[in-house]
Amino acid sequence: MTTRFDRIVEDNAWCPGCGNFSILAHLKEALEEMGLDPLQSAVVSGIGQAAKTPQYMSVNMFNGLHGRALPVAQGLKVSNPSLTVIAEGGDGDMYGEGGNHFMAAIRRNATIINIVHNNMVYGLTKGQASPTSQRGFKTPVQTEGVHVEPFNPIATAISLDASLVIRTFSGNKEHCKAMLKIAIEHKGYVLIDIFQPCVTFNKTNTFKWFKDNVYELQDDYDPTDKVKAFEKALESHPFPIGVIYKGPPKVILEDALRDESRVGDKPLYSSTVDYQRLGIEMEKYI
């Protein structure tokens, strides 16, 4: 399917067969089918293989630093709330280098679609452990295998009462697209953690492994039940995929900052300075 988000790419830096291609395709289609305007959308990314995604799309792009997509995305959303803002990157990018920003972003609850390509490895730097690498995973650095428990982004997000927490799998097109659409439609912060096989550096968590180790949540599952959601978050082998948690309505960052400062809805670039008021305020300092 062709979309308005397609870009002609002469030189893609991903390995053939990498799960990133599927995520890119699902994302473009989901955005297209949701009727989004590429010119009014922006993808902010960090550094890593996953973070290259916006390079291969027709969309506004801020390809920043490793770990720093979320703060840039939040600033952008406050600066111009009419933009659809996506913050995208890998598991190392978002959960490792950007871990503090990840927690703060969940709590701030700006309307941001936080897409994390979770391949359980550092791809770009050639195969070291990531925060989500499973125990025993051997790498050139973790020569005896990873000896710590993997970071659980889903449980963490639920504990911070994230507005919406989703997990999906790049290899399940229907599911992945459906989940992306739910994320795109949501007001407030969304974590969408996407299992993604890295064919080059992760020979353990392969396409088949993911396929065998996930199951779809059924329609009768209630994501608003926080305790149930926690239980789901702690399940592994197989891992549940779907909308795992939907938090109660809460304050949205861009609305709050704009209400508090009485800026209103207009983008900040259209603000003007009230010099008369400035004169009055300065008079108080005599």
């Binding site: 406050v78 111009n80 927690m103 400062s261």
Partner: peptide
Amino acid sequence: CVEQAEDEIAAFQMGLGVWYGGG
């Protein structure tokens, strides 16, 4: 608009996001 950042790294990066958006 005023936001206390989680650290100085984020404070600066948020600022860049704002300028990128025109603020």
